[in-house]
Design a protein around this nucleic acid. Sequence first.
DNA 1: CGACGTCCATGCCCTCAGGTTATTGATGCG
DNA 2: CGCATCAATAACCTGAGGGCATGGACGTCG
Lengths: 296, 296
Amino acid sequence: MDVDTRLLRYFTAVAEEGNLTRAAERLYVSQPALTKQIRRLEQLLGVQLFTRSRTGMALTEPGRALAERAPSVLSAWDRALSGTRAVASRSARVLRVGFVASAANEATQAIIAAFSELRPGWRVDLRQASWADPSAGLADGVVDAALLRLPFPGQAKLCVEPLFSEARWVALPSAHPLAAREVVDLADLRDEPFVAAPPETGAWRDFWLASDERQGRPVRIGAVTEHPDDWLTAIANGYGVALAPESAARFYSRPGVTYRPVRGLSPSGVGVAWSPADDTDPVIRDFVRCCLERAS
Amino acid sequence: MDVDTRLLRYFTAVAEEGNLTRAAERLYVSQPALTKQIRRLEQLLGVQLFTRSRTGMALTEPGRALAERAPSVLSAWDRALSGTRAVASRSARVLRVGFVASAANEATQAIIAAFSELRPGWRVDLRQASWADPSAGLADGVVDAALLRLPFPGQAKLCVEPLFSEARWVALPSAHPLAAREVVDLADLRDEPFVAAPPETGAWRDFWLASDERQGRPVRIGAVTEHPDDWLTAIANGYGVALAPESAARFYSRPGVTYRPVRGLSPSGVGVAWSPADDTDPVIRDFVRCCLERAS
DNA sequence: CGACGTCCATGCCCTCAGGTTATTGATGCG
DNA sequence: CGCATCAATAACCTGAGGGCATGGACGTCG
């Protein structure tokens, strides 16, 4: 008896939401399509998985049994997939490097260049991650190494080497009164609306909102963005201000956005991370070495 | 990224056979269909899994990586499937009982009747297994309990309670000279062709060929059968003789087939088996109790 | 009490995945 | 050289799986 992992994902979504309509939205399919799939799954197993009512879809006892076991299937497949891809990229002499926007900025290019010289046969695949994934794909096994802002959630499970740290500056709409000053005080920013990363990024988001350093004053969110482009646009349009590493002033300059140093703000660290499973891999070690050389 | 488990089964088959044509036969699909599926899988992963040549399909390094991981996905799904079905049948008050043909014979009905009386709300689903599966589906989680001939392969991993034992008789074509005797000597059977179970049944097959008791004299196979009907037909048609439990003489009588006791042959045991996971289940315990009561 | 909102199910349509048979190419072998 | 062996391709058919629009059951609220 065969299933598609898609069917299992559909099932878990409905099980979690308890509601076809919402699950369908979450899965980006239409509700009738989902209805059909769930019925098909039930028919496939010969087991009723849900009891339908106007209040939604409730798991039956066998449904709960499947809901408990489905994740193990999905995660087994995830492991198989990322494992296979990892081996494939290795045997094609490709190093997959993830980075979050504004992580290493201009250092990135120097690192890649140094690595290319050290390992002439190898190609580097650079993949920019959205801010929603602070591990830049490393946690999912999508990349072999990543250039990241420190600290980041899940850091404990990975090997990390800090590279350098930079002052946190502020990016302001050029028309903003504070843009006229050479240096801004953190205290002056406390009541400004901020352009922030999506809420699911947790500690990462908080760090760039200076949540720890605003003495309990709640932050006002002016806009939420996932990528540098939206971010710059939001600031230029006056939706709010945002903290950014000093190098962003050079790397992400744009008319309408002004960067200024901030007094009284701790710096931000940049590091390189890789999976403990690859810790002995000579190519990874070379890459890390390049990072350390070029960053100091 | 989603896959169908079918695709993974196809992949493993090709990986094992190293040959599309043979793998296609084994999977009961056409060779072009399999070609397409394998290419689709490669495309899906963005990874070349095989190198094609006149000698067949050889795994690449990433292919080997997937071949190592695919079984874990398939077995996770197998567990999820049989686990869910088990819970479903329990919550529908159905006890799934497997049996191999001629295991308990007439005792079976008495057992079921006793169980129905003890657990009036419950229904028993009887499932006859082919001789190719001596655990009658118990090993695969397809049934909750099974009535079996002992010993059987995989017995160590299950809970087993022996019920009774029976003499092994011989089933002969009625026209066979030995059918004229009241009792047959094992020695007289040694050079006869036998009707046997399929080779993959291993020890089971050997036991019913009396391999251990023919003093190294090789057995001659006259026919191979999987089900009682073929078996009786093969014997009646004179393709060979076969050992059978005494009760088969009553339970599987047919014109053209004569049963006779055999001197000098050890008896055959019958038992009930269930999964250790269900050992504390009161319903299973009741069923086992019924078996013990009715068999003694 | 009737209008509306919320959910799931149904009907109809379209596209493409996945299967079939027949055939073509490539390549080693007697 | 002709044959056997494998994989790939072509042409075709069926049905799975998606979308939209709508129906039906049932609370809820003005």
